[in-house]
């Protein structure tokens, strides 16, 4: 796959696209089956043993089998209007609810981070106050320089730091991949070092 990215060859292209890509798809599909078995086994045991809050396991398994039934047996599978009715009106709303909870989590995490307990925390607080004031109309009303200062912090402090981290992460990811490819990293194969 690496070679295919650099070398122009019909053979490599066909091999990667029609053989390796399909192999990945097939193995992923089998893995989903394993995941389903894992869910059924864990929650089935919980229901059987009447463990605490086992009612939620019943809800989970009923929903699980219901969606699987709809996806498999409906004429248009997961694009069937009946399937989409449940998907759009239950799953999407639940996901959106969980996503919106993030707003409260951000507020509580920010509250803890912004408490001035050290020199670093005071830098964080003062920088974030400037950036926040630069992003809201009241900041500009207080002092017209806030948006510019906020933008300067983003461009000249935040961006270089993120780029430095990106370079480190890219090199780290490459090193990790090389360790896997040449067999130095075997932890995921047998649990050894």
């Amino acid at each position: 796959m690496v070679l295919q990215s650099y070398i122009q060859s019909d053979f490599l292209y066909t091999f990667v696209q029609s053989y390796l890509a399909r192999a990945v798809t097939v193995s992923s599909a089998w893995a989903v089956g394993l995941g389903a078995v894992n869910i059924i086994r864990i929650h089935g045991r919980r229901i059987k043993a009447r463990r605490e809050q086992y009612f939620y396991s019943i809800v989970l398994l009923v929903t699980f089998f219901w969606f699987a039934f709809l996806g498999i047996f409906l004429q248009k599978h997961n694009s069937d209007p009946f399937y989409l009715f449940f998907y759009n009106n239950i799953l999407l709303n639940l996901s959106a609810t969980m996503y919106s909870v993030l707003a409260f989590y951000i507020a509580s995490a920010a509250y803890r981070s912004f408490r001035v307990r050290s020199l670093e925390a005071s830098f964080l607080l003062s920088t974030s106050v400037i950036v926040m004031l630069g992003a809201v109309p009241i900041g500009q009303a207080l002092w017209s320089g806030f948006p510019g200062l906020s933008s300067w912090i983003g461009t000249n402090i935040n961006t270089p730091v993120l780029r430095a981290m990106s370079i480190g992460l890219t090199l780290g990811g490459l090193t990790q991949s090389m360790r896997n490819l040449i067999g130095i990293e075997r932890g995921h194969l047998s649990g050894g070092d």
Binding site: A164, M165, G168, L169, L171, G172, Q176, R179, E185, G187
Partner: peptide
């Protein structure tokens, strides 16, 4: 950053 990959 790359401390993640140093772990092993």
């Amino acid at each position: 950053a790359e401390e993640l990959y140093v772990a092993s």
